[in-house]
Computed example of a mutant assay.
Amino acid sequence: MDVDIAVIGGGPAGAIAARLLSRAKRETVLIERNLKNEKPCGGGLLSKAFTAFDIPLELIKKRVESIRIVSPNGNTHDISLSTAYLAIVHRVEFDEALRKLAASEDTGIIEGRFNDIRHIDGQSVLTVKTTAGEITIKARHVIAADGVNSTVVKRMLKRFPRRIYTAHEIHSAEGGACNMSHCEFRFGSVTPPGFYSWIFPHKDGISIGTGSEHTREVDAYLDRLVSAHGTKPNGQRRGYFIPVWDGSLYYKNGVYFVGDAAGMVLPFTYEGIYYAMRSAEFAVAAILKNKPGLYRKHWQEAYRKRYLVMRALQRYFLKNDGRMEQLVSLYGHTHIREASMRLWTQDDTKINLIGGFAALIRKYGSVREADA
């Protein structure tokens, strides 16, 4: 099979890339190993994604209107998200809907496992195992959107990105329905160092979880969190990896790396779905102009400073309980809450969100440049 573009991976990044390419009348196939796969994921993404990528609002299972942060000593602050709410989706349904939108633009969908890639005479030659047997696909361009455990990355770069292991359980809500309208982030004793624990609304109740770079310690911390919360799980515990961003992977030998395969996850919050789709959008723009360097250029102009600031804040504030306590106390200031929400939810690079936020931290906190 000869095509213009092959997209490997049918999650949000891959599906958005395929849809945009097909809409531009470029012959595109999307390869997904399991069309019924349910990724263990909180399913939260910024509501602006639905407008930005013309996604049906009916896919939203829950609107999260505020965030609650809890310090090691139990101090709390509630932060309103205003109009920039967090949308909770069911990943199986959401991913399938995005693939159907791509198919409606004439993307070809292949259910099969990508096995290998070779580069011959300026083309990428893919081998894909399907239920009908192995097929070969020749493509002028390839988009690798096959997640944190990317087989494309493994084949081409002989490595995986740095990763954090997370685990979560779904717990039934009291009374059989989830009325939780906020996402809760907990810091301190129920959380591995350098990370946070969460309690989020879920379509089947609530999601309770935590994570760490040290895989073996996650279950013990999650046990403590579950015990402290007092509810019971309605299903098995599930674990999965989240990539850690380092900003190094964009394009190599005709392949564009997007989403989790490129580590495009926002430091500190580890929000990834929206940024995965944006990375796909930037990669598509580079393909349509046949200028691979545009992908890195556009991404860095839009998000590099934001990612660096969020990483610096994570490294400083999540270092120990004292700094976590300081972090939560900062959110007692209205200006800090408002600046945080702008930094997290706005994409306007013409306003100095990052510099403004750093100035407020210096005014109300005591972050030392050496620690950041």
Results as ranks from 00 to 15, higher is better:
137 I>E: 04
42 G>A: 14
42 G>I: 00
183 C>G: 08
319 K>E: 14
314 Q>E: 15
27 E>F: 01
232 K>T: 11
262 A>V: 00
233 P>Y: 07
41 C>V: 01
362 R>M: 13
19 R>I: 00
266 L>I: 04
236 Q>D: 13
266 L>H: 06
186 R>N: 02
328 V>W: 07
33 R>K: 15
273 I>G: 04
35 L>T: 15
32 E>Y: 08
214 H>D: 13
261 A>V: 02
72 P>G: 11
145 A>P: 05
365 G>A: 11
56 P>A: 06
244 V>P: 03
310 M>A: 14
263 G>F: 06
365 G>L: 05
1 M>W: 05
294 L>Q: 14
132 A>F: 12
59 L>W: 11
247 G>A: 01
340 S>L: 06
335 H>V: 05
252 K>N: 07
165 Y>T: 13
340 S>G: 05
57 L>G: 00
301 E>K: 14
148 V>G: 03
175 G>Y: 02
7 V>N: 05
186 R>L: 13
24 A>E: 12
105 E>R: 10
15 A>S: 15
243 P>H: 09
356 G>Q: 10
181 S>I: 06
175 G>E: 10
29 V>Y: 01
317 F>G: 06
66 S>I: 00
163 R>T: 13
241 F>G: 03
331 Y>K: 01
205 G>H: 09
99 R>D: 00
174 E>A: 13
102 A>V: 02
36 K>W: 03
198 W>G: 00
1 M>S: 14
260 D>N: 15
271 E>S: 12
284 V>R: 10
308 L>G: 00
3 V>E: 06
188 G>D: 02
358 A>I: 14
298 H>F: 11
255 V>E: 02
50 F>D: 07
91 R>D: 01
268 F>R: 11
255 V>H: 02
286 A>I: 03
18 A>H: 03
284 V>W: 13
95 D>N: 13
187 F>W: 11
361 I>V: 15
51 T>H: 12
138 K>N: 11
369 E>Y: 12
113 R>D: 02
180 M>S: 09
54 D>G: 04
163 R>V: 13
218 V>F: 10
63 R>K: 14
90 H>E: 15
72 P>C: 08
45 L>A: 02
157 L>D: 12
321 D>A: 14
109 I>A: 11
175 G>V: 01
242 I>A: 10
13 A>Y: 07
345 T>F: 11
153 V>Y: 06
89 V>D: 06
